[in-house]
Computed example of a mutant assay.
Amino acid sequence: MPAPLTLEGFRADLAEYLYLRPDEVDLDENPLYAGLDSLRIVTLIERWRETGVDVTFVELAERTSFAQWWQLLSTRQEAAR
């Protein structure tokens, strides 16, 4: 079973694509305003699916902050266990 996605891992994944340090990721920021394009979002989704979290691009696109992304991911992860 893959290691679960943690908030720290989530922040680190975002930071990698935003060219920030994990502690610089503002969870209240809108992902599109932060600079994530659709290709990066798809790449993140694939990475998170490897941890057992199943989300779609549309589900993430409907949410307007990284905090809302994390809420969705963590809820899905709990449901999968």
Rank of each mutant, 00 (worst) to 15 (best):
Y19T: 13
Q77E: 09
Y17T: 08
L18T: 04
A67Q: 11
A3E: 14
L72Q: 02
V42P: 05
L5W: 00
R76T: 01
E24H: 03
A67I: 07
E29V: 07
A80Q: 01
L60P: 02
F66E: 01
T75E: 03
E78T: 15
A3Y: 14
L44V: 11
T75G: 02
D37C: 02
L32D: 08
E78G: 13
L73K: 04
F66G: 00
R21A: 11
V58T: 12
A61R: 13
L7F: 14
R11G: 00
Q68V: 08
E16G: 12
W48D: 04
R76G: 04
Y33N: 11
A80H: 01
I41D: 04
Q68F: 09
R21W: 10
V25D: 05
V25L: 04
P31N: 02
E24G: 00
Y33A: 13
E50Q: 15
E62C: 10
E16F: 13
A12K: 06
Q77Y: 08
E16P: 12
A61N: 13
E78H: 15
D13L: 15
T43L: 10
R21S: 09
V58D: 12
Y17K: 09
G35L: 01
L5F: 10
F57S: 07
S38R: 02
V53E: 06
R76P: 03
A61E: 13
L7N: 14
D13K: 14
E78K: 15
Q68K: 10
L5G: 04
W69E: 06
V42K: 11
L14C: 05
R40E: 03
A79L: 05
L14V: 06
R21H: 07
T56G: 09
A12M: 08
T43K: 11
R40F: 03
R76I: 01
T51P: 12
W69Y: 10
V53G: 06
A34K: 05
I41Q: 05
P22M: 05
L44F: 09
V55G: 02
W70A: 01
S65P: 03
L7W: 14
E29N: 13
W70D: 02
T6R: 09
Q71E: 15
V25M: 00
M1H: 15
W69Q: 02
A12E: 08
S65A: 08
V42T: 08
A12H: 06
F10P: 07
G35D: 08
A61W: 14
L32I: 07
F66H: 03
R11Y: 05
A67V: 06
V53A: 02
F66C: 01
Y33G: 13
L20Q: 09
L20F: 09
E46A: 13
A80P: 00
A79D: 04
D23T: 03
G9W: 04
V53M: 04
T75Q: 04
S38V: 01
I45Q: 02
R81C: 05
E62N: 11
